[in-house]
Design a protein around this nucleic acid. Structure first.
Lengths: 109, 109
DNA sequence: TCCATAGTTCCAAATATTTCGAAAGATTGG
DNA sequence: CCAATCTTTCGAAATATTTGGAACTATGGA
């Protein structure tokens, strides 16, 4: 039997909070760390990035980068999707803008 | 000799960071706590409040309230001025808006 | 199947934050 | 000066966050 295609619905899903459950204090706490704020700003150009991209850009060990990316994802700021052996992270621009209008502007100007 | 008048320039000054030195991550961290976010929201009506007002409103012991008010003040979100035996805190609305346009709207809507 | 790659999770240590009672400081009125 | 009031600071415990190496998992290519 051949392998499942990339991004198959049958693979373990990465959990993302629903847009309308995002909590402002939780989001603020997430970006209240300089490293995580830097990640959000890197992602603000709308391009997707692998974990490695972000870890390299900030000079972090893999486990540390993974930890911070998890907090951003759980706060609802980012979306991560599997792609082969990589995971690709992007800013949840529309969702965050919908839930907290103006916030991204504040974070990224 | 009679006492100095209230708010005399000679009394120990409460330290507030200059508007143009406010740090976004520090501000975000400050409001990333539910208690402190609640304080900011109470102050968002523009009225000044004593420490006691705020502690009562949130059911906090005095020392806990004082701690959180200090963090908000040091982050640059609030201004505190002495008035008799009390200290009166207000939101640094114009300063925060000038430094981080749109942030207060996000925090208080 | 075996291997290399990408990323996560586990774990423990280091550090930081939060809490609140007790003590101390500051100010006013008497 | 004294007492009352409001607030801050101290100190110590509880809790939470951050860090990064090592082990583990998942995937795709050979």
């Amino acid at each position: 039997m051949t392998h499942m295609p990339v991004d198959s619905p049958s693979r373990d899903r990465i959990i993302h909070p629903a847009t309308d459950t995002l909590d402002l204090a939780t989001v603020m706490r997430a970006v209240g760390d300089p490293l995580r704020l830097a990640i959000v700003r890197l992602l603000a150009d709308g391009k997707e990035r692998t974990c490695n991209d972000l870890q390299q850009a900030l000079g972090l060990p893999a486990s540390t980068g993974s930890y911070h990316l998890r907090l951003l994802r759980e706060a609802g700021l980012t979306h991560t999707r599997p792609h082969g052996t990589q995971r690709i992270t992007s800013l949840r621009r529309a969702d965050v803008e919908h839930r907290f209008p103006g916030l991204l502007q504040v974070l990224t100007r």
